[in-house]
Design a protein around this nucleic acid. Sequence first.
DNA 1: GAATGTATCTTCACTGGTCGGTATACTATG
DNA 2: CATAGTATACCGACCAGTGAAGATACATTC
Lengths: 198, 198
Amino acid sequence: MAIAKGSARQRILQSAHALFYRRGIGAVSLDAIAEQAGVTKRTIYYHFESKDDLVASYVASRDQPNIDFYESCFERAPGSLPDKIEAMFTEIGRQSRGPRWQGCGFLRAAAELIDTPGHPALKAGARHKKRLEVWLASKLSDTFTPADAESLARQVSILLDGAFSVLLIHRDAAYAEAAGKAAAILIKERALLRNEAV
Amino acid sequence: MAIAKGSARQRILQSAHALFYRRGIGAVSLDAIAEQAGVTKRTIYYHFESKDDLVASYVASRDQPNIDFYESCFERAPGSLPDKIEAMFTEIGRQSRGPRWQGCGFLRAAAELIDTPGHPALKAGARHKKRLEVWLASKLSDTFTPADAESLARQVSILLDGAFSVLLIHRDAAYAEAAGKAAAILIKERALLRNEAV
DNA sequence: GAATGTATCTTCACTGGTCGGTATACTATG
DNA sequence: CATAGTATACCGACCAGTGAAGATACATTC
């Protein structure tokens, strides 16, 4: 009510994002989301079929913004290819220091929903991670063959998810640095092997 | 009631482990645990202060068994140091194919409880991950200096958590292989740098 | 341009069920 | 009989989901 007419759906999604990411999916009631969005619960059920549907929409809505975040990290960073990749890890480490940072929302959603196989939010999360891997490969394919780019993209994405997980547990940005350095070493090592310049 | 295999407390912990790991902490009620343990809920409250206390005890009880698992992977595997490390990843990939596998229980517990700072289960999880990293360093310190062993142990533990996370999402053992190969490369590369034989 | 019909959006009030936790009493054993 | 452990039965809080009706916007008709 009040703020912006005709955007109830958007406000619901925003509130869902804020609360689900902060407290976890199971820990947040639709009443809480409704209150934060300035809407009654019944309105949520007008725009979304069920809580599961809202959860899936929330996860799907984070796909593009997250890709954009990595893209901006990568493009903004100075230096060579491994430097730019390493900068992504540094930025994640920097973010992990913030009081509102709670790790990777996709990973946490997957961890929570894993025993409801076929949940649309799980599929949306998997799609996102796959897209991120493809995006990484595209950045690497300027220097490497498609096969090498894909293989390296996979290793880097594993290091990214590892960094998120460890950071969530230890809250120590040194782990992000270690992961970034590992990624850079793997890239340089592969370039050396192929006699490519990086 | 039930087949009193072991004390009630032990059965409660075992049921908690089975259900919490399978379905997640928030999704499992004490009633469900009581039923599976062949005990009433009141008995749970005799042995544990609260659900949070039971959760913390569950996490803490998985510490040693998990370390033992890695130890056995490592010792059983043939070959050189990087081969043995890589074998740990291969084994995780093999396990991820099983229908009851649901990723790393410590990571999933942390993901779910992250918004209750100071939760004893979070501390128990962090202690476990720290112990695992120290254990890895001890295995590496036969070959490397303490500083290199610690640095490599950190990178390997990040790859382990990354493998768990990605496997949870994609259920594709190829990711475990990729992570294992990355770990082996990092170790070999470091050995080369130090003129150490592996 | 005023009146009316209609589909869209939102609210209030409610339900059936589940959950964490508890008061109290019973039982087995040494 | 004293203590540790277990059972029955219950509570208040909360939660996902719903029924029915009120509000709003917009198109149609005269």
